[in-house]
């Protein structure tokens, strides 16, 4: 019954997964790229700096490209997306947290009053 009730509520029909509902501005900060060990266009690599070894292609045999570059610490990139896809960092889901809280309190009151009413009628 509770599940059906939840399904009827349009605001609840869409649960949120931070990875799914993240706005472009949030995802856009990510430096999403895949290296193959070959030098790519300069603009693709503007957000991070490569080690000299990687640029020169020396001493890097046996290592894939993604292992041989550096990002600024504390910034979102392909390796730290999981870290920043947590609720504390994704302020755009805070409103949804509040929405869920209100829905849950309303549901709790409904269940409480409903079960009390049923008990009195028995």
């Amino acid at each position: 019954m509770v599940i059906s009730l939840l399904s009827l509520m349009s605001s609840c029909r869409t649960d949120y997964d931070i990875g799914e509902v993240a706005p472009e501005s949030f995802e856009g900060e990510a430096c999403d790229h895949s290296h193959t060990g070959q030098a790519g266009p300069e603009d693709e690599h503007s957000e991070h700096r490569h080690s000299e070894e990687h640029e020169q292609g020396s001493d890097t045999e046996g290592l894939s490209g993604s292992e041989m570059h550096f990002h600024e610490p504390g910034q979102r990139n392909h390796g730290t997306a999981w870290f920043f896809n947590q609720p504390w960092a994704a302020s755009f889901v805070w409103g949804k947290m509040l929405r869920d809280s209100v829905v849950l309190v309303v549901l709790a009151l409904t269940v409480y009053l409903g079960s009390g009413y049923r008990r009195r009628r028995r």
Binding site: L98, S101, V102, V105
Partner: peptide
């Protein structure tokens, strides 16, 4: 607030079961 709301919801469900 989020955690306490879920707690209230679960307690309401528990009470509904207990009342029956």
């Amino acid at each position: 607030v989020y955690g306490l709301s879920y707690m209230a919801f679960m307690l309401a469900l528990a009470l509904a079961v207990f009342r029956r």
